[in-house]
Design a protein around this nucleic acid. Structure first.
Lengths: 346, 346
DNA sequence: TGTTAGCACTCCACACAAATGAGTGCTAAC
DNA sequence: GTTAGCACTCATTTGTGTGGAGTGCTAACA
């Protein structure tokens, strides 16, 4: 038995209807609402076949059908291969992006917009710091024995570190040290800072090697720390309003999952590390494809953003399996386009 | 009719029991579990009086009693006036605080700990920037026509601003400008920066007045923007596990409320602005005292933290009215003590 | 006069049965 | 190959009865 044209049409009808209503779809509903020119009985036969093929399933004997992960997969692959949608230019996004500011704030604004736009949960990882190029390092006097190190990288990301050192320093001295640091580090990737390099640079600093060493060690540690990237989320409550989570047990469970930053980080960066960037840059995991009990009723759409040609972060949407993939993908693409424009010209 | 000793004991018993069980408390329960030496019938008479006095109420005719806001208020005032609890030194908090770092990160860590400790929702506002003293300003070269301004204030808070200017600048030049800025601004409150002052400082900068003006204008704007303080929350999901929110409708409603940062900011800073800092620094609003429909089933405990002797931020806990006020207040006091120690020595 | 046992009454919560209805699979006719 | 008809399934809704927790009131008691 194979998936002929008519079966495919029925499958599409089932999915389409289910996306709208969240209710199992019966043969009569399809016959009435979709102009396929066949009776409920015929549709029932086809549905029986579709179930045997694994594309749809029945919650219980006398209910209609709902799409299975395999069914969604087919549907989503069709959307992805269509690629007819050229991302629109969204003026409100541009307005958002034109507010010059820190990239962290920008990303937080972006997930907020994305979540509001799609009524889903939006997540984003801050750029992978270790792979960024160092643009500028500046040491700033705080008080006796305390110094603030500001490290600016690609995309004008600024990271601040408070350092404790064992001697007092005034700003002119710190400027001198900053100059040395910049000479040595400008243009390097953050992860290129390693112990031999630290020793080498310390030599240049003469008797001020302590603070130089300290700055570099802090950066070194930050790099070898997977706390490297931050995760921002927005719109988790959107899930509470969905019928699939109308059971308090499930609602609590999904909220708890979305609240675990470490877990979300892993979910987001999983494929990213493995370089399995797919189809047009958009990657979709449906239900059990996430390989995780807590996410089995959810789908995850992700895509990467690039700074200086390198993929440095991931932005994504989490929603119920029964989500509007079409428009979610579209929103994501539009935003990515604008983000990259902003980050790379700045 | 007045509130004699026995009535008070019964009220305490009712509240104590209700805090544990979240179920209306009947006369038999009190007679059995609390050693008051009187029978259920007598207790019933007293309860009838307590209800008439407005301290307790009945959800329906044949149910036990639950405390009213007025009842909680009496109970809470007794706790507050007792003040026998000298905040303990918590080693795990100290460990947290000793990680030198940005104040924003610190505050985020603190609410996380507080929420975990109390199983409530913890909220904190970042220090009121406009009332902080300027410690240091440093301009950092980013790229052609873009400069990063780092402004460090009391408590080593660093705020970064990306500025666009109309001419190229190298770092030595920016250092010179930073020097001028520091000379003029060091020790001032941020809010003391105003238009006349800006003009005055511009004069010192000679032909570099554009960038100087720009930096100051950005700061000026930030001050006159109530986006001044950020709000961090943690543990909102703790609410989902409480029996008072076992109804999905209510659960969603409270989660939505807690998700509205602007609303929470207002709630937190309401009394703060009005300087109505109360009893031992701890301020409690019970249920309808919050004057807000969404918060009518919740209580809010707040207290301020000081930097350099000035109250600059608020930290608080949101929980069900039926929360363990005693231990919540205690946790809050302990944390405040440690925070202030850390912020003021740094 | 304050306390207590007894009792009728109220009302929620829960369990259980019956009715409803949406949807199916199968069969036989077209 | 398609379709009408029909028996069957099963979740959901509705109705009903029962148990139990708790009250208020009354009358008796110390």
């Amino acid at each position: 038995m194979e998936l002929n044209e008519r079966k495919l049409k029925i499958l599409e009808a089932i999915i389409s209807n289910y996306l709208d209503t969240a209710e199992p779809v019966g043969s009569r509903t399809i016959s009435k609402n979709y102009d396929l020119g066949i009776s409920p009985a015929t549709i029932r036969n086809e549905m029986s076949d579709l179930e045997e093929l694994g594309f749809i399933m029945q919650p219980h004997t006398s209910a209609g059908r709902i799409p299975s992960d395999k069914g969604y997969r087919l549907y989503v692959d069709m959307i992805l291969s269509a690629k007819y949608d050229s991302p629109k230019h969204l003026s409100y996004v541009e307005a958002l992006l034109n507010k010059a500011g820190r990239i962290e704030t920008l990303l937080q604004d972006i997930v907020a917009v994305l979540a509001k736009e799609t009524n889903l949960t939006a997540i984003v990882s801050t750029p992978q710091y270790s792979k960024c190029k160092i643009k500028n390092i500046q040491l700033i006097e705080l008080e006796a024995q305390k110094v603030l190190a500001v490290i600016v990288t690609d995309g004008n990301m600024a990271n601040n570190y408070v350092l404790e050192i064992n001697e007092d320093m005034d700003q002119p001295m710190l400027n001198k040290l900053s100059f040395i640091l910049n000479n040595q580090l400008h243009g390097l990737d953050v992860e290129e800072i390693n112990l031999p390099l630290i020793e080498k640079i310390k030599a240049f600093a003469g008797n001020q090697d302590e603070i130089i060493g300290k700055v570099l060690e802090v950066v070194f540690q930050a790099v070898h720390n997977n706390d490297d990237t931050q995760i921002y989320t927005s719109g988790a409550i959107n899930m509470l309003r969905l019928p699939e989570f109308s059971d308090l047990e499930k609602a609590t469970s999904i909220m708890e999952t979305l609240d675990k930053k470490d877990y979300i980080r892993q979910l987001l960066l999983n494929d990213f590390d493995g370089e399995s960037i797919e189809t047009d840059g958009v990657n979709i995991k449906i239900g059990s494809e996430n390989n995780n009990e807590n996410m089995k009723d959810c789908s995850l759409i992700t895509t990467t953003y690039h700074i200086g040609g390198k993929p440095l972060g991931v932005i994504g949407l989490i929603g119920p399996r029964r989500m509007d993939y079409q428009s979610a993908i579209f929103s994501l693409k539009c935003l990515i386009k604008e983000i990259e424009k902003r980050m790379n010209d700045s």
